[in-house]
């Protein structure tokens, strides 16, 4: 059990015949994810990892009853793929694609309003409920079923933290990568709210980074709405101002977005903020009920 995805999630892969799409479809199937099919325009009738390919999301949903979609479509077509899923009434969509134009995401967000769809990403590793459903690109074997909810803007830094937890024998309820872009569908507060309400999550780990004010907004939310203990780390305290650090969203500009401000806001909200990325595991170990 966990949030967003579980053993009842029937996953559709958009862009299933592409290089990344086909590779990760096999990995997800290996992990035990219930992949029900995929979509690539004009490729209906083919199979990938033994799963049927459809021309449109609508066709795929009608044939398979898919209730979640993961997108590996290249950047020029990613926004279109998200909107197609929204129009087909898909309840949950995770967009892995990196490099989607920001103006496309403004239009996507407009299309999402008033719809039934929750979007995760883009430019994210996806989401995994260990032992049940892996929907994305994270290495499955480092995860362990358990009760710690992990939410992060980063991909590999999340793996590092999850690995520390698993090595310490601490399992995870669900790990959510929300993505590093300026515009993303699901933010820290959305996931924090889900973890707070999830009976299987006892402790929350939140990994932030420099840029934007989402961590400050999350701190405000935590102080008002979250009763479960939260451990956090903010990456990028050593980054020079004005420089983009890989993620399009990770930039300190005009005095906002600094690591120290985020740390201060979180500390004030009662969050235990790790000084180094390598002490997160042991900090969580001290909080998890035996």
């Amino acid at each position: 059990m966990g949030i967003l995805v579980g053993k009842d999630t029937k996953v559709l892969v958009q862009g299933i015949t592409g290089r990344d799409g086909s590779f990760h479809t096999e990995k997800m199937v290996e992990y035990g994810t219930n992949i029900v099919g995929g979509v690539t325009p004009k490729k209906a009738g083919q199979e990938v990892a033994g799963k049927p390919v459809f021309n449109t999301v609508k066709d795929a949903v009608a044939a398979t009853g898919a209730n979640a979609s993961v997108i590996y479509v290249p950047p020029p077509f990613a926004a279109g793929a998200i909107i197609e899923a929204v129009e087909a009434g898909m309840p949950f969509v995770a967009c892995i694609t990196e490099g989607v134009p920001v103006s496309d995401m403004v239009n996507v967000w407009d299309a999402l309003k008033g719809s039934e769809t929750r979007l995760l990403g883009p430019n994210c590793p996806g989401v995994i409920t260990p032992g049940e459903c892996k929907m994305g690109i994270m290495p499955g074997h480092i995860h362990l079923p358990g009760n710690v909810g992990v939410v992060s803007r980063s991909g590999t830094l999340t793996y590092e933290v999850v690995d520390q937890l698993t090595r310490a024998g601490i399992g995870q309820s669900t790990c959510v990568g929300i993505g590093g872009d300026p515009i993303i569908g699901t933010k820290f507060v959305d996931v924090l709210d889900l973890f707070e309400k999830d009976p299987h999550t006892t402790t929350i780990v939140m990994i932030g980074e420099i840029g934007g004010t989402d961590e400050e907004v999350a701190a405000e939310f935590i102080s008002k709405n979250v009763t479960k203990p939260v451990v956090s780390f903010i990456a990028g305290s050593s980054a020079p101002p004005g420089q983009k650090m890989g993620h399009a969203g990770a930039i300190v500009s005009g005095g906002s977005g600094k690591a120290e401000d985020k740390v201060e806001a979180l500390t004030k909200a009662g969050v235990k903020v790790a000084v180094t990325p390598t002490e997160i595991g042991s900090m969580v170990a001290g909080l998890v009920p035996a």
Partner: peptide, 17 residues
């Protein structure tokens, strides 16, 4: 040399630490 932006930043942070 690191893979991933978040881990790359965290590596720099740890070097400074």
């Amino acid at each position: 040399v690191v893979n991933g932006a978040g881990l790359a930043m965290a590596t720099m942070d740890l070097i400074k630490y």
